[in-house]
Computed example of a mutant assay.
Amino acid sequence: MSEETPDVSMEESAPSEQFEVIYSCLRCGTTVSNTELTRLPEIKCICGFRVFNKVRPPVVKSVNAV
């Protein structure tokens, strides 16, 4: 008797980490998440400006000197 089991790859079984990207309008400074921008029909701020800047996370990386 042979039982067939579907092959599940490691990519499908492991939950993928998705980071929330925050953007800021250059004109008015309103912060908008990536998911909110994808819901809109066009990429535009509430003030009408279309230029966004990616907000950096507050984590500071330190590198040891050699």
Rank of each mutant, 00 (worst) to 15 (best):
G48Y: 03
M1S: 15
A65P: 07
M10V: 09
V55E: 06
R27D: 09
M1V: 09
V55Q: 08
C47A: 04
N53H: 11
K54C: 04
A14S: 11
C45D: 00
G29I: 05
T38E: 13
S9R: 09
A14W: 07
E12Y: 03
C25H: 03
T35K: 12
C28A: 06
S33Q: 06
V60K: 14
V66Y: 02
D7K: 14
V63L: 06
C25V: 06
Y23V: 03
C47W: 03
D7Y: 12
C25Q: 05
G29T: 03
N34I: 03
V51A: 13
T35M: 04
N34A: 08
L26V: 15
V59L: 08
T31I: 02
K44H: 00
N64G: 02
E17I: 10
G48C: 02
T30W: 01
S2H: 06
L40C: 10
V21L: 08
N64V: 03
V60F: 00
V21W: 01
R27Y: 01
P15F: 01
V66S: 08
Q18H: 12
S2C: 00
C28S: 04
S33V: 05
P57G: 10
S62K: 12
L37R: 12
R39T: 08
P6N: 11
V63Q: 04
N53T: 08
R27L: 08
C47V: 05
S13Y: 09
C28P: 10
E36P: 01
A65G: 05
G29H: 02
S24Q: 14
E4S: 14
M10N: 13
V8E: 06
S33L: 01
F52Q: 04
